Amino acid sequence: MRGKYFIGIIILGLSIFLHSTEAHLQLGFYSKSCPKAEKIVNDYVKEHIPNAPSLAATLIRMHFHDCFVRGCDASVLLNSTSNNTAEKEAPPNQTLRGFDFIDRIKSLLEAECPGIVSCADIITLASRDAIVTTGGPFWKVPTGRRDGTVSIRQEATNNIPAPTSNFSTLQTLFANQGLDLKELVLLSGAHTIGISHCSSFSNRLYNFTGVGDQDPALDKKYAANLKANKCKTPTDNTTKVEMDPGSRKTFDLSYYTLLLKRRGLFQSDAALTTNSVTKSYVQQLLQGPVSNFFAEFATAMEKMGRINVKTGSDGEIRKQCAVVNS
C-alpha cells in the first residue's frame, strides 16, 4: 500500500512539473525577457501607419492568412527554398504586402533583445496596433507564440478562403479553424478598410458563369460604375478598388451596409447574405452602435490569434522572419 502511495506521489509530482514547464500564451509574456518589446512594435506602427494607412488592412490580412495555415506561427513569412515552394507563392498570398514592414520591426527587436521575440508575435501585435492606429478597436494580445519551420504552398491554397468562395466553402474553412458563423461575419468586417485588385472579382463583372455574363447578385449600378471607372477590361490585374468605397480608411460598419445593398466586392462578401444566420448577424450589427461591433470584432480577433499556436519548446524563435534558423 505504501509503495502504491509513493508511486502516486511521483506521478502527481511529475504531472505538476510537466504542467508548470508547459508554456502558454500570456499577457506580458516578454515583460522580463524583453520589457520594451511591445512598445517597440507599437512605436514603429504608430510612426509609419499614418503615412501608409492601407498597410493596416495588409497587416490584418497577413495575420488572417498566417493563422489559417498551420496556426499563427509566421509560416506565411517564410521564403521558398530549392526543394520547397512556400505559402508566399500560393495564389491567395501573391498579393500580400508588408513583409518588409515586419522585417524592420524584427530588426529593431533583435537589436534590443536577440532571439527572444517571435515573428508570429510580431505579426499579431503589429496587426492589432495598426488597426488601433487607424481608429479601429483594441484587443488583448497575449504573447508567447513561437515560429513554425514548415511552409507549404498547397496548404495555403487549400485553407485560405478565396474571393470566389461560396457560403458552404466559407463555413467549412472557418469551422476547420474552430471559428463559427458569427466569427465569419465579424472577421469579414476587416474588409471595411481593405482594397483589392480587379483580378480578384472581375469574373463577377465580365464572365460569372463562363458565358460572358455578370453576377446577378451584384448591384447593377455598382457593377456598371466599376466597369466604367475602375476595372475597364476583364484582364486588368493592376487597378486597385476600395472594398468599402468612401470609407476605406475608417474602421466602421459601412462594409455591412454595402453587403445588404448587394455591393460587397467579392463573391465571398456577397455569400454572407445568402445564409439566414449570417445575414441576421449582419443586420444585428447594423442595428447596434459601432462600439458593439468593435467589442465583438476584438473578441473574434483574440480567438483567431490563438489558432494552433506553438508555445514552449515547439517551433523556434527565428533570427530572420523569412528563413528558418540554420
Rank of each mutant, 00 (worst) to 15 (best):
F6A: 15
F6I: 15
I9Q: 08
G13H: 06
L14V: 13
H19M: 10
T21F: 11
L27H: 12
F29I: 04
C34L: 13
K36F: 09
E38A: 10
K39A: 14
I40H: 07
D43Q: 06
Y44W: 05
Y44E: 02
V45R: 02
N51F: 02
N51G: 14
A52F: 02
A56V: 01
M62C: 03
F64L: 14
V69C: 06
V76N: 07
S80K: 01
N84C: 02
A86M: 02
E89G: 03
A90K: 02
N93K: 00
N93S: 01
N93Q: 00
T95S: 13
G115F: 11
V117H: 08
I122Q: 14
I123S: 10
I123T: 12
L125R: 02
R128W: 03
R128M: 12
W139L: 05
G144V: 08
G144Y: 09
R146Y: 09
D147M: 10
I152N: 08
E155N: 12
E155M: 10
T157W: 12
N159I: 10
I160W: 06
F167C: 10
S168P: 02
Q171N: 14
L173C: 03
A175W: 03
N176P: 04
L179V: 00
L181N: 09
L184G: 02
A190D: 07
S199E: 00
S200K: 05
S200T: 11
R204T: 00
T209N: 15
V211A: 11
V211M: 11
D213N: 15
P216R: 04
P216T: 11
D219F: 06
D219K: 09
K221V: 12
Y222N: 11
L226V: 08
K230R: 14
K240L: 13
V241G: 01
F251S: 07
F251Y: 03
Y256C: 13
R263L: 04
L265V: 08
S268Y: 00
A270V: 03
A270G: 14
N275E: 00
K279C: 03
K279D: 05
S280W: 03
S280Y: 03
Q284C: 14
L285S: 05
Q287M: 08
S291Q: 05
S291Y: 02
F293H: 00
M301K: 07
I307C: 04
V309Y: 04
K310N: 14
K310V: 06
I317T: 08
A322T: 15
V323L: 15
V324P: 15
